[in-house]
Amino acid sequence: MKTLALLATLCTGALLLYGTKDFPAWGDPQSPANSYLSPKYIEHAVQETHVPNLVTAVLGDYRGYDTMFETVVIYCAGMAVVSVLRRNRSQ
């Protein structure tokens, strides 16, 4: 069982390492992740929201929907913990 798990892990790791061949080099400003959407955020976020911290601007304004449902997720986590664990003192 343990050898099987080790084998599966090594296979996954080897596949992922083979996949990194096509990834951009570390710190490349022209990599795909850095070239389409984020330059627009960096250039226009301060003019559009007056917030110098770009992370806050994107978190609260451009991706407010994401943040809202994320708050709902942690709220649900709290409710789940209470409903799984909480017991009354009398029991």
Partner: peptide, 9 residues
């Protein structure tokens, strides 16, 4: 409107 976006955040 821009100030409101800042305050809304």
């Amino acid at each position: 409107p821009v100030e409101w976006r800042s305050f809304g955040i």
